[in-house]
Amino acid sequence: MSHRFLATILNSDKVKIGILLKEGPYNHQAADTAYKFAEAAIKKGHTVDAVFLYNDGVINATNLTDPPQDDRNIADRWSKMAKEHGVEILACIAASKRRGITDDIMIDGGSITGLGTLTDIAIRNDRLLTFGD
C-alpha cells in the first residue's frame, strides 16, 4: 500500500474549514471562540484554510493593538496561527476602509482582500463557520 493511499484513507474523515469572523477583538467573545475552535480543529488534523474578517471583525487584523501584559494578545494569536499553520487571515477591503484598517498596519501573516475571496473560501471548503455577535 502506497504512503499516499494510506494518507488518503487516514485523512478521509478530515474536513477543510473556512471561518467568517464578524466581531472585533475584546468587545465580544467571538474572536476568542473562533480562535479556540480553529486551534482545536488544527490539533485534530483538520485544515483551517482561512479566517475572513468582516464587519468590525477587520479590527482583529491591526498590529496597533497593545493589550495589558496579563491579557491575551488576540492579534498576535492570529499572526502566529497564520505563520505556524498556514491559515490565511484576510480582512475585507470594504469593511476595512470604513474602519481605518490598511495594509500599513496589518498584522504579520494578514492581508486585505475582497468579498470575492470569501466566496472562493465558501466554495473551496467543506465548511464555513460564522462567529459574531
Binding site: K22, Y54, N55, A94, A95, G114, L115, G116, L118, T119, A122, I123
Partner: peptide, 18 residues
C-alpha cells in the same frame, strides 16, 4: 450595519453564480 454589509456581501456573491 449588519444588514447593509450583509447586502454588500450578497451582491458580490451573486456575481459568482452560486
Amino acid at each position: 450595519i449588519y444588514t447593509y454589509e450583509g447586502l454588500e456581501m450578497i451582491l458580490i456573491m451573486a456575481a459568482y453564480e452560486q
